[in-house]
Design a protein around this nucleic acid. Structure first.
Lengths: 243, 243
DNA sequence: CGCTAAGCGGGGACCGGCTCCCCGTTTGGT
DNA sequence: ACCAAACGGGGAGCCGGTCCCCGCTTAGCG
C-alpha cells in the first residue's frame, strides 16, 4: 500500500456530511473539548451506525440503488427512525456506502501491485478483489445523479483512478498486458461483469463472476489475439458518462 | 439459417397472446367469418401497434424493465389509452418485446454458423450481433418474474439455447474454442457485457461494448491461457437462476 | 361523397410504496 | 440512581404509475 487514507472511512464514526463544526460556543462543560465538538457518540449509536452501513451496502448491492430505506433498517435490526437520525436522507447513506467501497477497492489496487510477483498477477488479483467488493453494483448509484461533485467523492475517485492507472501502465510496460486497451476498458468491463443480475439474490451468479473475469483477463494478456474496434477507453471517456 | 419461425414474429401484426388460432371455418362472409372472429384490424391500428412495440423495445432497453408505460406511449407518438388497448398490461407488452428480440438473436446464431468460415468466427459474429440486439437488457425482464412458464417463451428459449449450444459445441470440436467453458458462461457474460449501464442513454457505452466483447472472445480462444475457477456453466445452471 | 363505428387521445381517479416525523420507552454513561 | 441521548414503531403526506372514461378523429366502404 502507499497512499490514500484507508481505514478511517471504513469504520470510524466520522461526522456525517451535514453537521459542520459550527457551534462557536465551546469553553463550557466537560465532554466537549475542542470548539464545538459534538459532546460524544454513545456506544450503541456507533454500533448501530455501522450495522446500518453494512446492511445498506448489502441491500444496495442486491436490490439496487432504489432499495427501500425501511427495509435496510429492518435488515440492520434497527427502527427506521434510527436510520434517518444517522443519515438525513437517501443520498447521504449512498454517499457513505460508495466511499466505503471505493476506499477498499483502491486499497486492493495498491496492495496488489506492491505484493504480487508481476503486474499481470497484480491486475488479476485486483480485478477479482474488486468484484468481491461488488464494485459493479456501485456504478448505477454513481450514475444516478446524486453527489457527483462532492469533494470526498472526487478525491476517492481520483485515488482509485491513479491506482488502477499505475497497475495498467506497469503491466503494459512489462509487456504482459496488451497495449491497445486503457484503464477505462478495464473498469467498465469489470463493472459490467461483476454487476449482480437483477432478480437473483446474487446467490448463484457469483459462482460465475470470477470465471468470466478470468476469461476477460485472458483476453487482456499480452500477445493480442485480435484487433479491437474503436479506441482505448481513457479516463476522460469514463468521466463524461460514468461520473 | 435452418429452423424456428423467424419473420412472422418480427413484423407481422400477429395475434395477441390471448386470441387463439381458432379459425376452423373460413368460407363465410367478409368481415365476421367464424364464430367470434375479430372482424378486421384497421390499417393505422397495426401501424400503431408496431410503433408501440418499437418504442417499448427502446425504452425497456434504455430505462429498464420498469419504464413508465405512459412514457413509452409518448415516445411511440400515441396516447396511453392506445397502448393499453393493444396490450392489456405491462407483462403483455414485455412478453412481446422479449419474444421479438429472442427470435432475432436465435436467427443470428443460426445464420452465423451457416455462413461464417469457421465456428469461432461464427461465435464472434453471433456475439456481436446479439449485443446489438441488446440481449443484455432483456435478462432483467426475464428474471423479473412475469411469464416464466408461458409456452411461447419456453419455445423461444429452447430454440435459442440449441442454436448457441451448436455454435459452442462445433467450436470446441474443431479445437478453436477452449473446452473448459459452457454455453452458460457465454450467455451470461454476453448479457452482462452488453447490458446498458444505467444513467447513460446507452449513448457512449455502446462504443465500448464491442471492444469488451472482443476481449472476452479472445479469452475464449482455444489454447486456454489460465485455469478457470468453478465448473463450466451449463444450461441447467442458467435455468435455475435466469429463468 | 357521406355514413358508421373502430380507433384515438388526453385528463383524471385510484393505489401502492417510499419518505420522513412524532412521541412514549429504553439504555448507556457517570 | 439520575438524565439525557438514542431507540422503535406507527402513521401522515406525497409522488409516480396504472388504468378507465368520454368526446373526437378518421379509416373503410358503398
Amino acid at each position: 500500500m502507499k497512499s490514500s487514507a484507508r481505514t478511517p472511512a471504513a469504520t470510524a464514526p466520522e461526522a456525517s456530511v451535514d453537521l459542520g463544526a459550527a457551534p462557536g460556543c465551546s469553553a463550557a462543560a466537560a465532554p466537549a473539548a475542542a470548539p464545538g465538538r459534538v459532546p460524544k457518540p454513545r456506544a450503541d449509536a456507533v454500533r448501530n451506525r455501522e450495522r446500518i452501513l453494512a446492511a445498506a451496502r448489502e441491500m444496495l448491492v442486491e436490490t439496487g440503488a432504489e432499495a427501500p430505506l425501511d427495509e435496510i433498517a429492518r435488515r440492520a435490526g434497527v427502527g427506521n427512525a434510527t436510520l434517518y437520525r444517522h443519515f438525513p436522507d437517501r443520498s447521504a447513506l449512498v454517499h457513505h456506502v460508495v466511499l466505503y467501497v471505493m476506499d477498499r477497492v483502491t486499497a486492493q489496487a495498491e496492495d496488489s501491485l506492491a505484493e504480487e510477483v508481476d503486474a499481470f498477477a497484480a491486475l488479476c488479483r485486483f480485478t477479482h478483489a474488486a468484484a468481491d467488493e461488488r464494485i459493479g453494483a456501485l456504478c448505477p448509484m454513481l450514475a444516478a445523479g446524486f453527489d457527483r461533485e462532492h469533494p470526498e467523492l472526487l478525491a476517492a475517485r481520483d485515488a482509485l483512478e491513479t491506482a488502477v492507472e499505475t497497475l495498467v501502465a506497469t503491466g503494459q510496460r512489462d509487456g504482459l498486458l496488451r497495449t491497445d486497451i486503457g484503464v477505462g476498458d478495464l473498469m467498465v468491463a469489470l463493472s459490467q461483469l461483476s454487476r449482480p443480475l437483477p432478480g437473483t439474490d446474487c446467490g448463484g451468479a457469483d459462482r460465475f463472476v470470477h470465471r468470466h473475469l478470468q476469461l476477460f483477463l485472458d483476453g487482456l494478456r499480452a500477445p493480442a489475439r485480435s484487433q479491437l474496434p474503436g479506441a482505448a477507453a481513457t479516463l476522460q471517456d469514463l468521466r463524461r458518462k460514468t461520473m
